[in-house]
């Protein structure tokens, strides 16, 4: 089984450079990065980042919300309670646009929120990474890179030079992630 190593860096520039170096010069896989804020360009350096469906979910949620809002109004005003007021047609669609619009935005927001949590694998209150003492700085002031090292028989003693590689890139500490 291959092993997962977590390297700690001082700033986002070093982290980005380390990820780029690892991808270009070694056979180790860049599995993930953990940063206190969104580091521009980090996503592109992760191997096999699962596709991001949040925007699609927002679009579909918006269309779904708007259609159900419009459908509700047409159903209730034309079919369930057909009352003519002021000589207007039953399906007075220009008046129906307000609630349709609001329902569309609401559907988009809620659907996007669910897609965000789903895509992030949250809520997941505990994670093996939280067992590493230095990891609590991942939300404060340190930048972490997770790489997968070694082949089928890798272990702590034989990581294929991954620890040396990370130390050479300026890692402040390197730790093995408990499985």
């Amino acid at each position: 089984m291959s092993i997962l190593l977590l390297a700690e860096f001082r700033d986002p520039q070093t982290l980005l450079a380390a990820a780029r170096q690892t991808r270009e010069a070694t056979s180790f896989r860049v599995v993930d990065a953990f940063t206190p804020f969104s580091v521009e360009g980090m996503g592109a350096l992760i191997d096999e980042l699962p596709p991001n469906h949040v925007r699609l979910a927002i679009l579909l949620g918006g269309i779904g919300g708007a259609l159900s809002g419009l459908g509700l109004q047409l159903y209730s005003a034309v079919w369930a309670l057909p009352i003519v007021t002021g000589g207007r047609p039953l399906a007075s669609w220009p008046d129906f646009f307000f609630a349709t619009f609001e329902m569309g935005i609401l559907g988009a927001a809620l659907c996007g929120f669910v897609a965000l949590l789903w895509g992030c694998g949250l809520p997941r209150l505990h994670h093996p990474l939280f067992d590493l003492p230095q990891f609590e700085r991942a939300t404060q002031d340190r930048f972490f890179l997770a790489i997968e090292a070694g082949g089928a028989d890798a272990d702590d003693a034989d990581d294929g030079g991954a620890r040396l590689h990370l130390a050479g890139l300026g890692a402040l500490s390197v730790a093995r992630v408990p499985a």
Partner: peptide
């Protein structure tokens, strides 16, 4: 909710947050 600041999280966060701002 167990946020870890993973690159996978941030990519989705940015997509969601900016689209929400536009809406």
């Amino acid at each position: 909710l167990g946020w870890r600041g993973s690159a996978r999280h941030w990519v989705r966060y940015e997509a969601f947050y900016h689209t929400m701002a536009a809406l």
